Lab assay of single mutants.
Amino acid sequence: DEVEIEDFQYDEDSETYFYPCPCGDNFSITKEDLENGEDVATCPSCSLIIKVIYD
């Protein structure tokens, strides 16, 4: 799936974006990952991944 970065929750302390996963955990991707060109957020509890859409 693809999710807009605006739909993520941002945690300023950890500089990490979170998005709810269907399994009950959260996908996460850090601001640093995005700045380095990464665009895939992973869920630590299951095998799902999502593509992050940002400009």
Rank of each mutant, 00 (worst) to 15 (best):
D1L: 15
D1R: 15
D1F: 12
E2C: 13
E2M: 15
V3F: 12
V3M: 13
V3R: 09
V3Y: 09
V3H: 11
V3S: 00
E4N: 09
E4T: 04
E4W: 04
E4G: 10
E4L: 04
I5S: 02
I5Y: 07
I5T: 01
E6M: 03
E6C: 04
D7V: 08
F8S: 01
F8C: 05
F8L: 08
F8K: 00
F8H: 00
F8M: 02
F8G: 01
Q9S: 05
Y10D: 01
Y10G: 00
Y10F: 14
Y10T: 05
Y10I: 11
Y10L: 15
D11I: 07
D11H: 03
D11A: 09
D11K: 15
D13K: 13
D13A: 09
D13H: 06
D13Y: 10
D13C: 06
S14H: 15
S14Y: 05
S14P: 06
S14A: 09
E15V: 03
E15I: 12
E15Y: 11
E15H: 09
E15D: 03
E15N: 01
T16E: 05
T16H: 13
Y17K: 00
Y19T: 08
Y19Q: 09
P20Y: 04
P20I: 08
P20V: 07
P20K: 12
C21T: 00
C21V: 00
C21D: 02
C21F: 00
C21A: 01
P22T: 10
C23T: 04
C23I: 00
G24T: 12
G24H: 15
G24Q: 10
G24A: 11
G24D: 14
D25Q: 10
D25F: 04
D25A: 11
D25R: 09
D25S: 10
N26C: 11
N26Y: 04
N26V: 06
N26Q: 06
F27I: 00
F27R: 12
F27C: 09
F27E: 03
S28Q: 15
S28P: 12
S28F: 12
S28N: 15
S28D: 04
I29S: 05
I29K: 11
I29D: 00
I29Y: 08
K31I: 02
K31H: 01
K31L: 02
K31E: 06
K31A: 05
E32N: 01
E32Y: 09
D33L: 08
D33A: 12
D33I: 10
D33K: 14
L34W: 09
E35L: 10
E35I: 14
E35C: 02
N36F: 03
N36A: 14
N36L: 10
N36V: 08
N36R: 14
N36C: 15
N36M: 10
G37H: 06
E38F: 07
E38C: 07
E38H: 07
E38M: 03
E38N: 02
E38S: 08
D39C: 10
D39K: 15
D39T: 08
D39A: 10
V40N: 02
V40D: 09
V40I: 02
V40P: 03
V40Y: 10
A41I: 01
A41P: 07
A41E: 03
A41Y: 02
A41T: 02
A41K: 03
T42S: 09
T42H: 11
T42F: 14
T42R: 12
T42P: 04
T42I: 05
T42W: 10
C43W: 00
C43Q: 00
C43H: 01
C43N: 01
C43I: 00
C43R: 00
C43K: 00
C43M: 00
P44I: 03
P44L: 04
P44M: 12
P44W: 04
C46P: 00
C46Y: 00
C46W: 00
C46H: 07
S47W: 03
S47F: 11
S47Y: 14
S47H: 12
L48G: 13
I49F: 14
I49M: 08
I49A: 12
I50H: 09
I50F: 06
I50S: 10
K51L: 06
K51C: 06
K51T: 13
K51R: 10
K51Q: 07
K51N: 06
V52I: 10
V52L: 04
V52K: 01
V52C: 10
I53T: 06
I53H: 11
I53E: 02
Y54L: 04
Y54E: 06
Y54A: 09
D55N: 15
D55F: 05
D55P: 14
D55G: 10
D55S: 08
D55Q: 14
D55R: 07
